[in-house]
Design a protein around this nucleic acid. Structure first.
Lengths: 232, 232
DNA sequence: GAATGTAAATATGTAGTACATAATTACTTG
DNA sequence: CAAGTAATTATGTACTACATATTTACATTC
């Protein structure tokens, strides 16, 4: 348990370590020296000597960059700058147990914004095969008997929409968010334990994707998500 | 320079190190053991002994988690689990020099989706003071003489919109994206060096924010951003 | 005895050495 | 000259030693 702080607005000082400094220095060094993905980087000992720190500290800093995918290392061959995965940092942090309720709520809002705003991309890139997949999900949903089955169909439907945007980053981001909202559903279910349902169904959204336009899709998606807006 | 690979689809194997494994183990350990932010964590030596690795390896893993804000350490006092900053991982990676063109494009699309989709949040939370700030920016834009001044007003206007959503994560995310798009503007300017302008101006958006509704705002924002959609 | 000052204890931070391991390079041999 | 082998080398891991900050306990002073 944490001791109650008499001055909650004053946060304790967190000392910056050598690893922090070196990490920052390395990043700016690689950036300002114009290193591009694929370029070979100096050896650990050279960096340690240049920065006047132990190899230990350099390795801690490099380990951080390696986690983010900024560098790749192979024995004997040395290090190269790599093209990092934008979401590598996020995926470790999107944990409902770690994040506060306020952040969770903001992420949920973000989801609503994304799904309402993605209409244009969807109409630019929708394919018949994807529409058929959505159709199948809608049918599965109708045949579903249990609540969990319906939730699963809901996730599949919306997940498919993200994929249909043709924006891989967006699609992967959504995949990271799903467990977060599942946690919300499981732990903070509504008073009746049922998920509220909007005025527009998945079938309605699909019909608009087939025969409508981005504008009507946005309106329909807003109506579909409307129950969620009540909690904001 | 990288040697041309005869099998570009086959990626070289990246050996997983002890630090990788330990980092993963620690994260799952903290999660599954029900640790909450503020809880004290085992000492480095204890972790090293339990995992049968050197303290060095443990420190590399902990250094990664510390970078993400998942843990905080103070001398003698030990480590505590902390509430991480969701965007701490992102901010290090959102570097136009590091990310590929494809990812950059996807982030740009993401921006368009966000700004079209944020209408509802804006109308839920708009305040008169913020509308006045937007008004000021619109006037500044009219008085602007140079191209850079107009770009600066553009950034301020859109940045203010993000802030007005009341979603801090969204607002901070946008701040991280700005340098990315500035890089695009500077290095990949259109043929005439001018930024294309949409059918709806900032003044038009502001008028809708004052007297319109989310639906009309979404349409107006789409028209405002329309020139950008041409590049997708 | 409360307040203040001081010394011991302790967990993290940094430095340094040694060696293991993998992968390249150079060399040798048939 | 091809194939196999040994030397080389940069990263990965382990271990030791010590610095540093901060708590805890103790001692001193009024």
């Amino acid at each position: 348990m944490t001791v109650s702080n008499a001055f909650p607005e004053i946060e304790p000082i967190l000392s910056t370590t050598m690893a922090d400094v070196v990490e920052e220095k390395l990043r700016t060094y690689f950036r300002d020296k114009g290193f591009s993905p694929g370029d070979a980087l100096p050896k650990e000992v050279e960096l340690a000597e240049a920065l006047q720190v132990s190899r230990n500290v350099v390795r801690e800093a490099l380990s951080r960059l390696r986690m983010l995918g900024m560098i790749e290392t192979r024995k004997r061959r040395g290090m190269i700058l790599a093209e990092p995965d934008v979401l590598s940092g996020l995926e470790r942090l999107l944990d409902p147990q770690l994040l506060g309720k306020d952040v969770m709520k903001q992420l949920f809002e973000l989801r609503l914004v994304l799904e309402i705003g993605m209409g244009d991309l969807l109409f630019m890139r929708r394919k018949e095969t994807d529409l058929q997949i959505l159709q199948q999900i809608v049918e599965d949903e109708l045949k579903a008997t249990s609540h969990v089955e319906r939730v699963e169909c809901d996730i599949r439907f919306h997940g498919t929409l993200y994929r249909m945007t043709g924006n891989e980053t967006l699609g992967r981001f959504q995949k990271l968010l799903v467990p977060m909202f599942q946690y919300i559903i499981e732990n903070e279910a509504g008073p009746d334990g049922q998920t509220a349902v909007g005025a527009v169904s998945h079938a309605g959204l699909l019909a608009i994707l087939r025969h409508g336009d981005p504008t009507s899709f946005r309106e329909a998606m807003k109506k579909h998500l409307d129950p969620h807006f009540l909690f904001l």
